[in-house]
Simulated assay, not measured.
Amino acid sequence: MSFLTALFELSNAMAPYILFGLLFAGILHELVPDTLVTKHLGRESVGSVVKATLFGVPLPVCSCGVIPLATSIKKSGASRGATLSFLISTPITGVDSILATYGMFGWAFTIYRVITSMVIAMVAGVLTNYMDKEVEQPKPLFSAAPQGGFSMTPLHAKTDEAGSCCSGGSCCESTQKRGFSLRAALHYAFITLLGDIAKPLFWGLLIGALITVAIPENLSAILVEYAWLSYLIVIAIAVPMYVCATASLPIAAALMLSGVSAGAAFVFLSAGPATNTVTIGVVKKMLGSKSLSIYLGTIIAGSILFGLGLDYIFDISDIDPKSLVHMDEEAGLIAMASSTVLWGFVGYFLLKPLLENKGNL
């Protein structure tokens, strides 16, 4: 019963942001040409990683809402490194989280959190581009003709609506522009993208609820008692657990006020919003096991390193951030409705192959 309750609460917490992220991704897909994403984020370079990181920092999107956005820019031609850096920097920061961090811990802590998240994201992106390069498939020099023969038109050349060939980028620019279509945006968001992430989303929610049930209620007491292991304990809890950047703030403040080191609390602030079981499953499916290892390894190592650095700063300056916090525990009607809609879509995509196979018999 406690597992079902945890699953219900986790779904209510994540569903509105996932649906919003899907809708936002669908609208961006209609408004932003794929060529623009490819131009700025497609190269396996440091520049593309920096651009993806900076693009993700101000977006008020949590670790579940960023999934469809990252999937969308990857489909549009972004490199693995740029996609991964965007996937890390976006959920840790965001305008709402930055302001909330400032209100709770002050400007120095806020700047430290933003800069360290950007560094972690950039390092992960650069490592991915150099250690997990995209393998380009060899393309034939000439395209197949409709009648089964071969056309002498090179594949890299563009053709306009009349069929004339143009190898440059400007002569066909007008034919590539399209008007905004809400129907196309919704189809891309809730059919294309959600269909891609439905299975890892399903398992991520189940595993996330199981982990939530397994976390002891006296967590802060355990962390204080085993101070030398607090970093590893926090990492083990924060990585699979779902918590958004803003909601992680009062948890971190409560840990500090209960005697847990500021560095260990910072590890939770950094690793918690950046990862969860749902995101881990999607990253593995979208980018592969090697990128997933870089993703987790960079976040874990970076969070611990910067946590130790924060402890050192607190030790030499005697900083003791304290604040009053408030969290809404009750799930509203919108959250429950969003959860119902999301589970409806997930159930449809999970059952769709079974129904199609049954119909073919």
Results as ranks from 00 to 15, higher is better:
Tyr242Ser: 00
Thr275Lys: 07
Gly26Tyr: 02
Pro33Glu: 02
Lys352Val: 07
Ala254Leu: 13
Leu36Val: 15
Ala301Ile: 15
Leu269Cys: 00
Leu84Gly: 04
Pro140Val: 08
Met118Trp: 08
Leu4Asn: 02
Ala254Gly: 15
Ala265Lys: 01
Val135Ile: 13
Ile115Phe: 12
Gly168Asp: 15
Gly332Ala: 12
Glu330Pro: 05
Phe314Lys: 06
Ala265Phe: 03
Ala157Ser: 15
Ser151Ile: 04
Gly332Gln: 15
Leu223Val: 06
Gly259Arg: 10
Tyr226Pro: 02
Val325Met: 05
Ala185Lys: 07
Leu305Thr: 15
Tyr17Pro: 04
Ala100Asn: 10
Ala162Ile: 06
Tyr188Pro: 07
Asp34Val: 11
Met122Ser: 08
Thr159Asp: 03
Ala184His: 06
Leu219Glu: 03
Ile237Ala: 04
Gln137Arg: 12
Phe109Met: 15
Thr298Tyr: 02
Gly149Tyr: 05
Cys244Met: 02
Ala108Val: 14
His29Glu: 08
Arg80His: 09
Tyr295Cys: 13
Leu308Phe: 14
Tyr130Lys: 14
Pro138Glu: 12
Phe180Thr: 05
Lys74Asn: 12
Leu333Ile: 13
Cys171Asp: 14
Gly56Trp: 15
Val119Lys: 01
Arg113Asp: 08
Ile215Arg: 02
Leu305Lys: 07
Val46Asn: 07
Gly94Phe: 03
Phe190Gly: 03
Ile251Pro: 10
Ile334Ser: 07
Ala236Leu: 06
Glu30Met: 11
Tyr231His: 00
Leu269Arg: 02
Ala108Asp: 15
Val32Leu: 15
Ala145Gln: 08
Ser89Glu: 01
Gly259Trp: 11
Gly208Arg: 02
Ile88Trp: 05
Gly332Leu: 11
Val49Asp: 10
Phe266Trp: 09
Ala335Met: 11
Thr279Gly: 14
His29Phe: 04
Ser89Lys: 07
Leu201Asp: 09
Leu69Tyr: 07
Phe142Glu: 01
Glu225Asn: 12
Ile251Leu: 13
Gly179Tyr: 02
Gln147Ser: 15
Ser89Phe: 10
Ala209Lys: 05
Gly148Val: 05
Asn12Cys: 09
Phe314Asn: 12
Gly309Ser: 07
Ser270Ile: 15
Gln137Thr: 13
Lys75Thr: 11
Ile300Gln: 06
Ser220Tyr: 08
Met14Leu: 09
Pro216Glu: 11
Val325Leu: 00
Leu255Glu: 00
Thr275Gln: 00
Pro154Tyr: 05
Thr277Gln: 10
Cys172His: 09
Val46Trp: 10
Ala301Trp: 08
Pro353Lys: 00
Leu87Trp: 13
Tyr188Cys: 10
Tyr348Glu: 12
Ala252Arg: 06
Leu186Lys: 08
Ala100Tyr: 08
Leu182His: 04
Lys284Met: 13
Thr110Gln: 01
Tyr112Arg: 04
Ile222Val: 01
Gly332Arg: 14
Lys199Cys: 05
Glu356Tyr: 09
Leu361Cys: 06
His40Gln: 14
Met336His: 09
Pro216Arg: 06
Ala52Ser: 13
Asn360Cys: 02
Leu305His: 11
Pro140Glu: 09
Phe3Arg: 06
Phe55Leu: 14
Thr159Pro: 01
Lys290Ser: 14
Gly81Met: 01
Gly149Gln: 02
Leu194His: 01
Gly281Gln: 03
Val49Arg: 11
Leu210Ser: 12
Leu4Thr: 07
Glu161Val: 09
Leu155Ile: 11
Ser48Gln: 08
Thr192Pro: 00
Val46Phe: 13
Val282Thr: 12
Gly307Thr: 07
